[in-house]
Write a protein that binds this DNA or RNA. Structure first.
Lengths: 150, 150
DNA sequence: CTAATATCAGGACAACTGATATAT
DNA sequence: CATATATCAGTTTTCCTGATATTA
C-alpha cells in the first residue's frame, strides 16, 4: 500500500507534529528570554508591525487577525498605548469603534531601524539564512498558517 | 547595494519574523482549543512521544531536550504519571536519577493508534500535505530548530 | 568540595471566560 | 431586538526563579 487510508496517520506526520510542537515551545521560551526590559513582547511586536504594514485598525480587528480574543488584544494594545507607540481615536463613522494608529514617535522609531534591530528573531533569520532560504521558509510558514487557520 | 551591511535587517526578514511570531501564537492557541478533556497538552504529548521514540529518560534529560527548566518538566511528567502513561524507577547505577519509561498500558494505547488519531496537528498535516511537502516542511522545521537552539 | 538531580514554594505573564455598557 | 465593540473583573495555564536535600 503506497497510499495509506484516510484515517491513518503516518509515522512521519506524527514525528513532524511532535517537532512542530517542540519548536513552538522552544521559540516561545526563547522569545521570552530574549526580551530586554522595555522591549516589546511577541504579541506587542506582532500587533505593532501589523498596524505599520496594514494601517489603522481596531482592537477587535487586530484580535481577529492574530486569532485571539478582543479582551486579550485589549491588554496588548493597552501596553502599546502606555508606551506611547499607538494612539486611539474614535471612528467618526461608527461610534462603537476606536481606530488605533501608530504615533509619530513610533513611526520615527521604526524608521530609525531601532525596532528591527531589537528584533532578535529577525536578526537571527538575517544572519543564518540567505534571502533565497528566507523565501523558502516564508513559503512554508504561509502554508502552515493556512493549515492552522482552517 | 545588493548586499546589505551586517547590521541591517531587511524588510523581508522583519516580515518573516512577524509571520513566525504570529504563527507561533496562533498554533499555541489552536493546539490549546483543540485539546479535549483527558487529552494531552502539547508539552505532555511532546514528552510522551520523545520517551516512546528515544527510550527511557530522566526529568532533567527531557527538560534539556525540550529546552525548558527541570522544574517545569517535572510538572509535565507529574501529569503523565498521574494519568498512568509513564512510570519512574530509580536508576540502579546512579542514585540521583529516576528513569522514566512508558507503561505497558501506554504502549498499548499508542500501538492502537489512539494517540496518533487524537493528534489534531498530525492529522491535519496528513490531510493537507503530500509526503513530499511534509518532507519539505520537516526540513524547514529542523533549520528553525537549529536557529532557535544556537 | 563541586556538580547534577529532584523537588518544594511562590510568582509572572499571556491567554482565557463571564459580565456589562454602549452604539449600530 | 440582534449584533458588534470595548472594557471590567476574575481565573487558568505554563512557564519561571529561588531554595533545599541528596547523591556522584
Amino acid at each position: 500500500m503506497s497510499i495509506p487510508p484516510n484515517l491513518m496517520i503516518t509515522e512521519s506526520a506524527a514525528t513532524l507534529a511532535r517537532d512542530i510542537r517542540s519548536l513552538v515551545g522552544k521559540l516561545k521560551r526563547r522569545l521570552r528570554e530574549q526580551a530586554q526590559v522595555g522591549d516589546l513582547t511577541p504579541s506587542q511586536a506582532s500587533a505593532l508591525l501589523r498596524l505599520e504594514k496594514e494601517g489603522p485598525n481596531t482592537v477587535s480587528g487586530l484580535a481577529r487577525a492574530e486569532g485571539m480574543r478582543p479582551q486579550s488584544m485589549a491588554t496588548v494594545v493597552a501596553a502599546l498605548e502606555a508606551g506611547g507607540f499607538v494612539v486611539g481615536e474614535p471612528d467618526p463613522t461608527d461610534g462603537r469603534r476606536t481606530l488605533l494608529s501608530l504615533t509619530a514617535a513610533c513611526h520615527k522609531w521604526i524608521g530609525e531601524g531601532r525596532a528591527a534591530r531589537q528584533d532578535w528573531l529577525a536578526r537571527r533569520l538575517e544572519e543564518r539564512f540567505s534571502s533565497k532560504e528566507q523565501q523558502e521558509v516564508a513559503r512554508i510558514i504561509v502554508s502552515l498558517m493556512q493549515l492552522v487557520e482552517d
